[in-house]
Structures are given as C-alpha cells and as structure tokens.
Computed example of a mutant assay.
Amino acid sequence: MEFILASASPRRKDLLEQIGIKAQILPSEFQEASSGEDVYQLLETNTLGKLNDVEGKVLNTDKVIIAADTVVVLDGRILGKPADLHEAVSMLESLSGREHSVLTGLAISYAGKRNYQFLETKVKFKTLTKDEIYSYVNTGEGLDKAGGYAVQGLGAVFVEKIKGCYNNVVGLPLNLLYSMLNCWQIKTPKLK
C-alpha cells in the first residue's frame, strides 16, 4: 500500500512513521482560508481543499492520500500561525491561564472513495509570566505553529492539562486516522 501525505509538516511525517507508514510527501498548494466562516466549516474547507489539490496531481487512485489541517480556537476565534513576534506574544498572552481547543480536520481518499472527519482536543495553559512568554517567543519555535506554540517542543512546559488526543495537538490524530483507514480495511504496516 502506498501513502501520500498532502503536507510538508515534519511532525505529521514523523507521526505517520511512528505507526509504520512511510508516505511520499506531496505538499498541497491550496491557499487556506483563515477567517470568514464558521470554525468547523473553515476546517473542513481547508482540509478538503488540500485533499482536492493533491488528488489532482496524483494519477494512481490506488494510493492513499492523507490531508490534514489544524487550528487553535480560543473564544470562537481562530489563532493561526503568528505573522510576527508581536502577534506570537499576543497569542500566548491570550492563552495564558486558559483552556483552548485544538481541532484537526482529517481527509483521506483511496480508490475513488473519500472520508472526512475532525477531532477536538482541549488544552489548558498555566498562567504565563511576561518573561516566560518573551523567552519562548525568542526561541522561534512557535512562529510556524497554529496558536504560536509547539506542544511537542519547549511549549510543553506551558501545558497544565490535555483533555483528548495529544497527537491531535501535534497535528495528526493517529487514533482517528487508524479508525478511518480500518473502515476501508487498510492496515498500517506495523499493525497488520
């Protein structure tokens, strides 16, 4: 079975490899929307847009194409990737001491069939000091991450509690992926 990951995310690639999937990396060129719709509709639009883009580039329908999109939501507002250091500081200040949602949309296509689902995980941050925020932002780690932090890196020290799937916060909920693949009797190489 051949797999294609419609993402350049090294974290998603690593998570797939964790369960034995060596995917061809074929990043989507779909221009993600960042506002203007209901959060759940936006997530679906972006995830399926990525899947559509990569499906159009792949001639062989016997390959499994996996597309994902992750958003951080606080008070109904999407916190995307910070545009600069100032926005990163602002995001972390708003997350300080509060619970937020991390949602990942997951879309798979195989042999002319498609499936889309999403998963939500709640993350509670400790109360952050100004020094902690500025020290973290200056590492640059969270600048290319939704919400301005990386739970799998230094940002882990800010997390008090996670309700739900940790891998969802990283960017690819493996439990959901496994279930979706099993619906089509597609087995991961390590769990045949």
Score class of each variant (00 low, 15 high):
L106A: 12
W184L: 15
L48M: 13
E2A: 07
V89S: 07
S135E: 13
G153I: 06
L26G: 01
K161W: 07
V58W: 09
I21E: 02
I4K: 05
V39S: 09
Q152V: 09
G36I: 02
V64R: 00
K124V: 09
I78S: 05
N115C: 15
T61W: 08
D131R: 15
V64P: 00
W184I: 07
L143A: 03
F118L: 10
S34V: 13
F3N: 08
Q24I: 14
R98G: 01
E29W: 08
I78G: 07
R12K: 11
I65Q: 08
L16Y: 13
G36V: 01
M1Q: 12
R12D: 04
N167D: 13
E32P: 02
K13A: 13
A23E: 12
K63W: 10
E37H: 14
V137M: 00
S179W: 11
A150T: 04
A68P: 02
N60H: 14
L174R: 11
R114Q: 13
V39F: 07
Y136D: 14
I21N: 06
K63E: 11
L181M: 03
R12C: 12
I21K: 06
I108F: 07
V151F: 03
R77I: 06
G36R: 06
A107K: 05
G153M: 02
A67V: 03
G49D: 09
V159T: 13
N52Q: 12
D69G: 00
I65S: 04
R98P: 06
V71D: 06
I78T: 12
K113F: 03
N52F: 12
G147S: 04
L43R: 14
L181V: 02
L16Q: 10
H100T: 00
E120V: 15
K192A: 14
I4C: 00
L48H: 01
Q18P: 06
E32W: 03
E17W: 04
F125Y: 14
T121P: 08
D14C: 06
G171D: 10
V137Y: 00
E2V: 05
Y110P: 05
H100P: 04
Y116G: 02
K190L: 15
S28I: 11
S135K: 15
